[in-house]
């Protein structure tokens, strides 16, 4: 798969919300990133997964949301009717609704920054480098490298396995 997406290293997320605030500033005051906290201990940043068989694309009858050649989902606000169907079609709840503009908003991988050769705002701003932008292979290789190093250390006593 050639697509470049945003990946998260959960070992590193410190629930600071820098990514959310950055995204909000770069996107008309609407964040496409949402960091949720699980059991007061595990922070998980969530944004559009650019799914291969995206339910949001299936639900969209005007082709405002369409899959692109580079393996991402793109959004054209001009075609959006604001029906809201995709908001409820997304299994991860990461499509938001802009009540001012009456259109949806979804992570566009900071397309405006990418054309200028700059990484997505959330990726560069993350203080702990928990977010990275790139191809799946590169990410999994890096993740495996980091995981291998982590494996030699003891588990933190607080982690619960429920």
């Amino acid at each position: 798969m050639m697509s470049k997406l945003i990946y998260t290293d959960l070992e590193r997320c410190i629930y600071c919300w820098a990514c959310e605030v950055a995204c909000q500033r770069e996107h008309n005051d609407l964040s496409n990133m949402s960091v949720v906290l699980v059991e007061d201990r595990f922070a998980v940043p969530l944004s559009c997964r650019h799914c291969e068989k995206a339910p949001c694309v299936t639900a969209c009858y005007t082709e405002a949301l369409i899959p692109t050649e580079d393996g991402t989902i793109s959004f054209d606000a001009a075609k959006c009717t604001g029906c809201g169907l995709c908001v409820f079609a997304c299994p991860f709840g990461v499509i938001g609704f802009d009540w001012t503009g009456k259109v949806i908003h979804q992570c566009d991988l900071c397309a405006g920054r990418l054309v200028e050769g700059k990484p997505p705002a959330c990726v560069i701003t993350c203080p702990t480098q928990a977010l990275s932008y790139g191809e799946y292979e590169a990410f999994t290789q890096e993740a495996k490298r980091r995981a291998a190093l982590a494996m030699v250390r003891a588990m933190p006593p607080q982690a619960k396995v429920s």
Binding site: A18, E20, V21, A22, R25, A121, I124, P127
Partner: peptide, 23 residues
């Protein structure tokens, strides 16, 4: 707007949520 500074020796371009909201 605000632009990140990857060449900074300590932050390497990162900013916490407060830094992101300075404007």
């Amino acid at each position: 707007g605000l632009e990140y500074m990857p060449e900074h020796p300590v932050s390497e371009g990162s900013l916490c949520p407060k830094g992101n909201a300075v404007l």
